[in-house]
Design a protein around this nucleic acid. Structure first.
Length: 177
DNA sequence: CCCTGATTCGC
DNA sequence: GCGAATCAGG
C-alpha cells in the first residue's frame, strides 16, 4: 500500500509525541502504520529518546493505600486503592491531546442489597455465604444474622445443609449469586 | 504465551 | 539510517 512512507518529519513528530506520551512501541507502530515495533524502537534510539519508563509501564502512577487496615486472616478483596494517574506533560506539545485511553468508566458497583458485607465488616454473628466472584472487588458475604453455632443465616443454612435424601426436591437455587 | 524495550548487525 | 533478528525481562 503506502509506497514512499518513511521517517518523514510528520511521522517522526508523531513518533516523538506518542513515545513521550508513554505509548508502547507496538502501539505506536500500529498508529503509524507500515512499520513494525522494532522499527519504532530502532528509530527511538536513533533519536535519542530511549529509556523513558520501565517495561510495562505507560504512565507515572502513584498509589495511595486507603489505610493499612488490620489484615484479614483470609486472602480477600481489598478495597480499591486510590489511584492517581498523571500524564506526563509533553514539552513539545503544549496543547495536550485527548488521551486515546480515557479513564475507564467503573461500573456502578451493585448496590448492596440487604446486608451484604465485605470481609472487613463480616462479624462472627454474620452469615458467611459468599455472594459473587471472590476475585472481584464486588465480592461480598451475605452478612445476615447467622444461626448461632453456624456460619450461615437460616436461608443459606437451608441451602448449605440439605439432607442428601431430600436434596432433589429443593435443589433449586443452590447456585450462588 | 502474551507483552515490553534494548541491542546487534547486515543491508 | 534502517529494521529484522535476537536478547532480556515482566
Amino acid at each position: 500500500m503506502e509506497a514512499g512512507l518513511s521517517w518523514t518529519e510528520e511521522r517522526v513528530a508523531l513518533l516523538r509525541r506518542l513515545w513521550e506520551d508513554g505509548q508502547s512501541a507496538s502501539k505506536i507502530a500500529a498508529q503509524l502504520g507500515g512499520v513494525t515495533r522494532n522499527a519504532v524502537i530502532g528509530k527511538v534510539h536513533r533519536l535519542g529518546l530511549a529509556g523513558r519508563v520501565k517495561a510495562g509501564e505507560e504512565a507515572v502512577v502513584a498509589v495511595v493505600k486507603p489505610v493499612e487496615a488490620e489484615k484479614a486472616p483470609v486472602a480477600a478483596p481489598v478495597p480499591e486503592p486510590v489511584v492517581v494517574v498523571s500524564h506526563r506533560p509533553a514539552p513539545d506539545f503544549p496543547q495536550a491531546r485527548v488521551p486515546a485511553a480515557a479513564p475507564v468508566a467503573q461500573d456502578p458497583v451493585t448496590i448492596p442489597v440487604s446486608q451484604r458485607v465485605t470481609i472487613m465488616d463480616l462479624r462472627e454473628s454474620m452469615c458467611r455465604w459468599p455472594l459473587g466472584d471472590p476475585t472481584t472487588p464486588e465480592f461480598r458475604f451475605c452478612g445476615a444474622r447467622s444461626i448461632t453455632g453456624l456460619p450461615y443465616c437460616t436461608h443459606h443454612a437451608e441451602i448449605a445443609y440439605q439432607p442428601a435424601t431430600e436434596r432433589k426436591r429443593d435443589r433449586r437455587a443452590a447456585g450462588f449469586r
